[in-house]
């Protein structure tokens, strides 16, 4: 009995990723939740990277307290909330689409879930192994060959050595790089790098899978192949968090969705409920844009965000708000 238990434990360890201390579940009642986001807010200071980067400045400002105070005030003024009071609960096997315009806070939410950012307030609870697929292949060592990179990248993702050795051939085969295993990555095309990154990240059978626009890369054949692989994973009851601008893709993959707008959760529910809201949102913007381009009187438009006719000022405000939207 004890032997069996140990064996099971070892098997599980093989797929172990890094666990954050904050991710452990304390109560048994939480057991069927895969991801729980409680009152998460995320504050960024805009000038963080530029400000306070020199120790000389700090010494000088330490001598002049008024200057220090002013700097702190400026920092607070620059602060902006990338996420405001987000609450989410995902059961095991849920597939959540995260919709929203550029700058809505989608990637920040995913990075908070992945443990890269610690939320300013609130907490994130996760259960099981998490595999993040963000900006595939960005972390490769360019002078390394594919073989070496598979081990390095796998180690970074928290895989075990035996696990990588076991999956090595599968990774190479899936990425279709059999001929280039011992060629340094710097000679690869960006598509080849992405394929390799995808193959490594999906080699593990995770409990939670984070997908940040990963299908918009590679050629059509590989895109189909990778989507197929993700869909295969659904059979293992994986929890998916999926960010995409392509509503069709989200509807194919997800059963639930949320819409983020300027860091706020504005809609939440089954994909069937949320998709029309998003469609309306983007449709209106498109319509208004086209109207503005053609010089049509806005009052004649049938659907407007407020339900009634729009004034020129309102339209300008909406256009300004969604300027970045494509």
């Amino acid at each position: 009995m004890a032997n069996k238990k140990r064996k099971k434990k070892r098997r599980k360890n093989l797929f172990k990723g890094y666990e954050l201390d904050q991710t452990r579940f304390e109560n048994d009642e939480d057991r069927d939740f895969a991801v729980k986001v409680e009152n998460v807010s995320m504050k960024f200071s805009m000038g963080l990277k530029q400000g306070r980067s020199s120790i000389k400045d700090v010494v000088i400002m330490g001598l002049l307290p008024t200057m220090w105070k002013k700097r702190q005030q400026e920092k607070d003024k620059d602060a902006f909330w990338a996420l405001t009071d987000i609450n989410l609960e995902l059961k095991k096997g849920d597939r959540l689409g995260i919709l929203g315009l550029n700058g809505a806070g989608k990637s920040t939410l995913l990075k908070t879930l992945a443990g890269v950012y610690r939320p300013t307030t609130g907490r994130v609870k996760k259960k099981g192994v998490l595999a993040p697929l963000l900006e595939l292949g960005a972390g490769f060592e360019l002078q390394y060959t594919a073989r070496e990179n598979i081990f390095l990248y796998g180690a970074v993702l928290g895989y075990r050595r035996e696990f990588i050795e076991e999956k090595f051939d599968e990774i190479i085969e899936f990425s279709g790089l059999q001929k280039f295993v011992d060629v340094p990555i710097q000679n690869y095309s960006s598509g080849m790098r992405t394929r390799l990154g995808f193959a490594i990240c999906t080699a593990v059978k995770p409990d939670i899978l984070i997908l940040d626009e990963v299908f918009s890369v590679g050629d059509a054949k590989f895109r189909r192949k990778s989507e197929q692989r993700i869909i295969e994973m659904f059979d293992t009851n994986v929890t998916v968090l999926f960010v995409s601008h392509n509503l069709g893709q989200v509807m194919r993959i997800c059963n639930k969705a949320i819409i983020l707008d300027h860091g706020r959760l504005i809609a939440e529910g089954d994909i069937g409920e949320v998709a029309p809201i998003y469609e309306q949102m983007t449709g209106e913007i498109r319509q208004i844009r086209q109207a503005a381009k053609a010089g049509v009187d806005v009052g004649s438009l049938e659907t407007t965000p407020t339900g009634g006719p729009l004034s020129k000022e309102q339209m300008d405000a909406i256009l300004e708000k969604y300027r970045d939207f494509d």
Binding site: Y18, L20, A114, G115, V116, P132, A138, G139, V156, L157
Partner: peptide
């Protein structure tokens, strides 16, 4: 580039 992307020690 790695540290900003995945959680690792």
């Amino acid at each position: 580039s790695m540290i900003k992307k995945v959680y690792l020690p």
